[in-house]
Structure formats: structure tokens, C-alpha cells
Amino acid sequence: MQIFNRSANFIAKASIVGLVLVVGSLLGLLTTANRWSWVNNQRVVREQPIQFSHQHHVQTIGLDCRYCHTSAETSTFAGIPPTKTCMNCHSQIWITSPYLEPVRSSFRDNRSLRWVRVHDLPDFAYFNHSVHVKKGVGCETCHGRVDKMPLMLQENSLQMEWCLDCHRNPAQYLRPRSEIYTMGYRPAESQAVVGARLMKEYHVNPRTSCSTCHR
């Protein structure tokens, strides 16, 4: 007497293949899920109290990054400018614009503007902004073409694999200190030559041990 239908042979084989496929795609999902932009916020524009345009202030007006981000070269944190920095110019320019009313009321009432932080590394990763600037990492390398961003967004994933890409081989990204703040920088010679030379000149020896960043 036969208990199983003839098709049971096929179902048995198919279920083996199916199991491999399901487990495989679950594992694949686990490894790629962290790279999705809804997880790491890459290239996601966040709503801010004011629609501040870096494109206008950097590209059109020609302000240097350091005019506002004064501690980028000296501190672990590049700094968000106080309202007073806005008022250096906006005490006279666009003084009736309704868009800028939050800036004026912030200055009047001495209440901080509540900007939404765009580049926020996880708290278990130690990061020092100034050392990266001093060692020849340009603004653009991590932050992208800020001069072409009407609204600020996070250009890169800021995930560990992204950090390690440069820490393992910084020569592919380094630029001379005179070009740190240049947007759209192109090396005069091949990047491999420039990068290797700058690594020696600036004593760039990034470490990749766990405790370098997870201290």
C-alpha cells in the first residue's frame, strides 16, 4: 500500500531547495538591511526649523565653511553656529522675510534654534573631527557636495564599513591641507601619487583596531 502520492518525491526535493532559499534570503536580508537608507538615513532630508540652504550660502555667497563651523579644525565637534552668526548678516539682509522670523525671534528672546542633527555618529564610536581635517580629509570627502545641497542631507552611510574603507587605505581620499575646504576638488596628479605622498607628509597612520574608535 502506498501512503505517499507520486508528487511527494517532488515536494520533498523542492522543500530542500526552498529551505536553502528561505534561509539564504533571510541571511541576505540581515546583512543588507543596515545599508538601507531608512536605517542609516543616508541621503534623507530631515525637516529643520528653518529651510537653510547650504547651496545658497556656500556656492552663491561664497562663504567659507569655517565662517560658521568655527571649531571644525580645533575640536572633536565641528560646531553648529549660534544665532548671532546668522545675525552678523541678517541684521541687515532679508530683515522682513517671514522665513527668517525663527532666527530673529531666537536672537531676540535668547532661545536657541533647535536644529535637527544630520551627521550623528552612534555614541559607542569615538570620533574627533579636527584630526581628520588636520590629516588631509576634505569636507567634501565625508559630507559630499554641500555647495549643491539646498537642504542638508547625509551624503554617506557613516557606518563602520564606510569608516574602515578610508582607515584601511586613506591614500585614496587624502588631499593637501590647502584644499580641505574646496568643493569639487580634483587632484593635479593621480590620486594614488598624491595620496601616498600626503600620507608620508602628514604622518597619516590610521589604526583599524577595535579600540581606536570603540574606546
Binding site: L26, L30, N34, T76, F77, S112, D123
Partner: peptide
């Protein structure tokens, strides 16, 4: 649970301490 744990990652990303200028 390991898939769902992905949603809880923010706990360790934002430790109960203040970063510079944090509200």
C-alpha cells in the same frame, strides 16, 4: 528575534548622556 532586534539598535546609538549642543 534577531531580525526584530535590529529595530532596537537606537538604544546603544543614543546613550543616556549629552553630546555637545544636545537639547
Amino acid at each position: 528575534s534577531s531580525v526584530l532586534a535590529g529595530a532596537c539598535r537606537q538604544d546603544m546609538h543614543d546613550n543616556p548622556r549629552y553630546e555637545p549642543l544636545e537639547a
